[in-house]
Each structure stands twice: as structure tokens, then as C-alpha cells.
Design a protein around this nucleic acid. Structure first.
Length: 284
DNA sequence: CGCGCCTCCTGTGTGC
DNA sequence: TGCACACAGGAGGCGC
């Protein structure tokens, strides 16, 4: 369940392995792994062959590899995607979707994805910022993220605060886990209407989001099972310090009340019934 | 146009 | 033991 910290961990791990290397050949093992590429898999592989990767970039949960052609390879890990560096002789993973072999015959880059919610695509001229992800907001770790604009935009929305946190066009990089963690810290129930939140509360919420993402990057990303593994093959361990996510029935780390789980947006939300009371009036 | 629901996908865990 | 089903959930697409 990679969110921003996990994707950043992958990006950092990948950077030293792929930057400056020339792609020799790309094999697509599963058509669904290539997204939004109408010319097809063969074309995808053809435009990448012979290109040199010039770096690694990220916005929110999206990752891209700028190429010397000015194009870029976009990657989204979805639920279970992994980007692994493997020696060419290593046996294929069960869910290997795409293989990048390099001209130097060194370690391969492999995209492995069990649930195929993730995918790769080529962005023409997208080395700086792919058009395909231009609609994704800057993430709060981006030096150019505009705090005032975020506060203004959130308060202008007519929705619930957790929905807003998960809206990647408002703020990117936050997923279900870190949204619950930030809401726990600021002591808000996720169903609280955004337009009724004060500026200081939204500002504090943003501060917690930023803190949590930063802490998780430091810890190397969260993981709950073997699905998420960073580029070096190590699982993250931030889950040891979670206060809300996955803690149904366990005592709140602040007041000791048993944490609750609710269905929200077709997924689980965890909160403290005492510190995060449900709003009296839900929307509509 | 804003908002919110549906769907895609497969391995794991649970209950009968 | 085996089957059925819930669950994990990011984000594009679409309906209201």
C-alpha cells in the first residue's frame, strides 16, 4: 500500500541504480502493466530501447524516470507494485510485468505487481513533468507546495475532511493509512465537513500530514505484509509507530479508549471514539 | 463542474 | 476439506 513515503523510499533506492544507465531492451510480460499507451506494448518497448535514464523524480505517489530523449517513463505502484533491481540471471518473479535490461549487462530493473493496480507508461516530452500527471497536486514535501492555497482550497470544498485528504488534486501523496494518522493527531473525525473547519485547524492538520510523511520517509516507509518491498528488498517498518491505522479495539495512545473501525469510502477508517467524535451533522 | 460511487485485480484469511 | 466470500485500496471514469 505504497503512499508517498514508500514511493519516495523506492525512488531514493532506485536513483543510484538507474541514473546514467542506457536501456538495452524492454520486455512487457503483461499488457495491463502498460497504461494509456495506444500504440501498444511493442511501441512502448521500442521507444525506450537505447535511451539513457537521466534521473528519478516523484510527485505524490507517482514516480518518473526522465530520459535523454526528453520523454519519461511514468510508474505508479498501485496497491502492490514493486520496482526491483535484480541480477539478470535471477529467476523471473511470479508477477513480473516488465523487465528493463541495460546495455552494461548489469542489474535489471523489474516491475513486479501482484494485483496489477499499478502500471507504467511513456510520457512524450514528459522529462520535466509528464502531462499525464500534471493534474496531480504538489505534495507537502515539495518545497513549492503552497500552504495558504491548500488551506483556502480545502475550506472551499463541500466534502468531508478525509475525502479531501485523499483527493490527489488537492494534496498528493496521502493515502488511507496516513490520512487516518493525521486525523488522529489533529483529533478530527474523517467525516467532518471541510467548509466548517477553521483556518488554524486546517493548518494544523497540514502540519501533522507533513510530520507523519517525513517520519515515515525517515523510517523507510510503512509495510504490512510482504507485498511492499523497497528497491533493496527490505520491508519498511513505520507500522510499529502507527497510532490509528489497523488498531481496531486497541487502546488509543492518547486516552486509552478502544479504537473503532468504520467503513468509509468503501474502505476501513480507524479513529478514537473519544478524541475524534463523529460530527453531529453529517453532510446533506 | 463538483462530488461521490463503482470498478479494476488477486492472494490471504475466515467462517460454515 | 473445500467452498464462498470479505478484505486490502489508488485512481480513472462516469453518473447525478
Amino acid at each position: 500500500m505504497p503512499e508517498l513515503p514508500e514511493v519516495e523510499t523506492v525512488r531514493m533506492g532506485l536513483d543510484k541504480w538507474v541514473t546514467g544507465r542506457r536501456v538495452a531492451a524492454v520486455e512487457v510480460h503483461h499488457p495491463r502493466a502498460i497504461r494509456r499507451h495506444l500504440p501498444g506494448d511493442a511501441h512502448f518497448a521500442a521507444v525506450l530501447a537505447g535511451r539513457t535514464i537521466t534521473g528519478t523524480r516523484r510527485r505524490g505517489k507517482y514516480l518518473w524516470l526522465p530520459l535523454d530523449s526528453g520523454d519519461a517513463v511514468i510508474a505508479h505502484l498501485g496497491m502492490s507494485g514493486q520496482l526491483l533491481m535484480q541480477p539478470p540471471e535471477a529467476p523471473d518473479e511470479k508477477h513480473l510485468r516488465v523487465r528493463f535490461a541495460f546495455a552494461d549487462d548489469g542489474p535489471e530493473l523489474r516491475f513486479v505487481d501482484q494485483r496489477t493496480f499499478g502500471g507504467l507508461s511513456v510520457s512524450e516530452g514528459g522529462a520535466e513533468l509528464p502531462d499525464e500527471i500534471a493534474h496531480i497536486a504538489r505534495d507537502p514535501m515539495d518545497p513549492l507546495f503552497d500552504d495558504d492555497l491548500f488551506v483556502e482550497r480545502m475550506r472551499a470544498k463541500h466534502t468531508e475532511v478525509k475525502r479531501a485528504l485523499l483527493d490527489q488534486t488537492l494534496i498528493s501523496g496521502v493515502g488511507n493509512i496516513y490520512a487516518d494518522e493525521a486525523l488522529w493527531r489533529v483529533q478530527l473525525h474523517g467525516a467532518r465537513p471541510t467548509d466548517a473547519l477553521s483556518k488554524p485547524v486546517v493548518r494544523r492538520l497540514l502540519g501533522h500530514v507533513r510530520d507523519i510523511l517525513g517520519e515515515a520517509i525517515k523510517a523507510g516507509g510503512t509495510s504490512f505484509d510482504a507485498l511492499y518491498v523497497n528497491v533493496n528488498g527490505e520491508s519498511g517498518y513505520f507500522d510499529r509507530s502507527l497510532d490509528a491505522y489497523g488498531r481496531e479495539g486497541l487502546p488509543c495512545h492518547r486516552c486509552g479508549t478502544a479504537m473503532r473501525r468504520e467503513q468509509f469510502m468503501n474502505r476501513s477508517s480507524y479513529s478514537c471514539p473519544r478524541c475524534q467524535p463523529r460530527p453531529r451533522k453529517s453532510l446533506r
